[in-house]
């Protein structure tokens, strides 16, 4: 699989996919997309990068262990739920704020945080699996 063309294209392909995955994640609430799909796209990016260059560059690139990212995602999702303690509403009730940043109104919400959590869980778990299998490939 380590052909020249593949190895030349893979970094750009992977980074594009990551970028796309974030785009898909953020627009998910209003257009097709969301955390599940975003996470899967990002995980595929990592798998491609891993096939092209081996596992250790991928591990270096994402710095953290993928399962740690997954755990972080679950943590984020629970934070999104627990935030509803403060206004005293049931667990996981959606809360919205609209701060203005540079004159643009941003819609921030706990469902968004939750969706980012989903993204990380899916991304982390599947990347971890793919990398683990690729690693065995070479031993």
């Amino acid at each position: 699989m380590r052909t020249l063309i593949f190895r030349s294209v893979a970094p750009y392909l992977s980074s594009l996919m990551i970028l796309f995955s974030i785009f898909v994640l953020l627009r998910g609430h209003n257009e097709p997309g969301g955390g599940f799909i975003g996470g899967l796209i990002a995980a595929s990016a990592m798998a491609i990068y891993g096939i092209a260059f081996g596992v250790s560059p991928v591990r270096r690139a994402i710095r953290f262990h993928p399962m740690a990212l997954s755990g972080f995602g679950l943590f984020l999702a629970s934070v999104a739920g627990i935030l509803s303690v403060f206004p005293g509403v049931p667990f996981l009730t959606g809360l919205w704020i609209y701060p203005e940043v540079f004159g643009v109104e941003l819609a921030l919400s706990t469902p968004l945080v939750f969706d980012i959590g989903v993204y990380f869980v899916v991304f982390g778990s599947i990347t971890s699996t793919a990398l683990a299998l690729e690693e065995r490939e070479r031993d």
């Binding site: 599940f36 599947i126 065995r136």
Partner: peptide
């Protein structure tokens, strides 16, 4: 179905590794 697809995949990956 959307969550089912992802979970089925996770399950499939687990089974695959188990088989392996």
């Amino acid at each position: 179905v959307l969550t089912a697809i992802v979970i089925a995949f996770a399950f499939f990956a687990f089974l695959l590794v188990l088989v392996f």
